[in-house]
Design a protein around this nucleic acid. Structure first.
Lengths: 247, 247
DNA sequence: CAATGTCAAGAGCACTGCTCTCGTTTGTTG
DNA sequence: CAACAAACGAGAGCAGTGCTCTTGACATTG
């Protein structure tokens, strides 16, 4: 947040006037209250007026600090992305540096734990888009890609370390168009892994979020699966086999 | 509402009075307009008043036909589930009866095509839950499980026909709790496939929807993947390998 | 001390879901 | 056929929403 980036909570190095400090504090309060409302009522029901009430202020006063409802949504979006990213980083860093399978599982488990803890935030980030709201890419892309960047990093490091089983079950041809996309990604992210690994990495990525979304969004029946921890762990173990991660 | 059951579009065998026919037609119109509004503005922005305007009627009149907004949402939910189910059935039935891999891919492609064509409906069914709205299970469960029932049917038929490669890559242990859940499912759905197959089937199920959701919800960057058809087809081919479907 | 800028408050507009009442239309029945 | 009850559309109204604009109070700064 302190960096030069046009961050949500703005520049912290300039608490020059007490007025500015008060303003920064008020914005932080609004985000905090917004997060609480989000958790209780969901994104679509996020109400500026309600936040204002909780803040003990009339509704119009909030507009001094937050341009409009979408702006608050953006602040909450960035906030949530960073919470998730922090959780993931912490979980992955706790694993042995050369145990890539464990790192993968730690990442996925961290995402799932966070999603279960903060279902409304998870919905905001990975659920159906809020109608009429378009996230400003220039502010959300960086925090929004932390998890996938980290995941790809694990896979690529595993590949470089020779920890990936190249002969993953049935070889599937990669068509030209997809290969071109993967080549672009490889260039942009400075990766070493071959097409087959990258493609399967994408599948694993979407599959992890698919499994979590099913759970958080209640797509499994109410009582179809009692042993959800075991189910998810099992899915991770199968998925790590899909990319050829052993362990 | 005249019939005993609170059915969505009520009994069609009783167009006794012209009044009832008019009523049925009006409800159908409301659902049709609702679907259009859904497609354009999204579920959370679905407005009974707007539907009333399009119907050329004052807002309160709509309440003669639809109990409230949630009721309309339920009607749209069931409608969408059945549209999707019909599409899927048609696509799967077009494949050779013994080509289970093709049936699986046809099912998944049908879901994806429908999702891309009707992103708002897809969001309603598989996206973040609409805040404050709880689908009435007794009315939505049957249409809502058509796709998964069909998918499981394909996998189980393949197993019974000996078309499943039992030695799927690395064997993963199934813990007791998960095995119990799977046993229940096997009993309820009268399946033959063993735990490993069922568990992997669940993973494939969530993975397919995960991939589609990523695409529909815009989780891939704007231009990360140009060859999305190829990407999805590739994912399906890898996934069919995960359950041991050859072809 | 005075000018400047920031702030909260309140009124107001257009929209939402939903309820209630009031006449009118419509179909059924005595 | 006439009377009656059910169904219906219209309209007013309540409480809520996002958002804008004006007004007056206050603090900071030159």
């Amino acid at each position: 947040m302190t960096s030069a980036e046009p961050a949500a909570v703005e520049a912290r190095e300039k608490p020059s006037t007490p007025r500015e400090r008060a303003r920064t504090q008020t914005i932080a309060d609004i985000v905090r209250l917004g997060r609480e409302h989000l958790a209780v009522h969901g994104a679509a029901a996020l109400s500026l007026r309600a936040v204002a009430r909780d803040l003990g202020v009339v509704s119009s006063a909030v507009y001094r600090y937050v341009e409009n409802r979408d702006e608050l949504l953006t602040l909450l979006l960035i906030d949530a992305y960073n919470q998730l990213g922090d959780d993931v980083d912490e979980a992955v860093n706790a694993e042995a540096e050369d145990d890539f399978a464990a790192q993968f599982r730690a990442l996925a488990q961290a995402v799932r734990m966070w999603a279960i803890r903060e279902p409304a935030s998870y919905s905001l980030l990975f659920g159906s888009p809020v109608p009429g709201y378009q996230a400003p890419g220039e502010r959300t892309t960086v925090p929004g890609t932390r998890v996938i960047v980290r995941l790809v990093g694990i896979f690529d490091a595993a590949y470089r370390a020779g920890a990936l089983n190249a002969a993953v079950s049935p070889a599937v041809v990669i068509p030209d168009g997809l290969a071109a996309d993967l080549a672009t990604i490889r260039g942009e992210m400075n990766l070493a892994a071959p097409d087959a690994t990258l493609a399967r990495g994408v599948l694993v990525w979407t599959s992890v979020f698919g499994a979590i979304s099913f759970e958080v969004f209640g797509q499994y029946g109410r009582d179809t699966f009692a042993a959800r921890d075991e189910l998810f762990d099992h899915q991770l173990r199968v998925l790590q086999g899909v990319v050829g991660l052993q362990g």
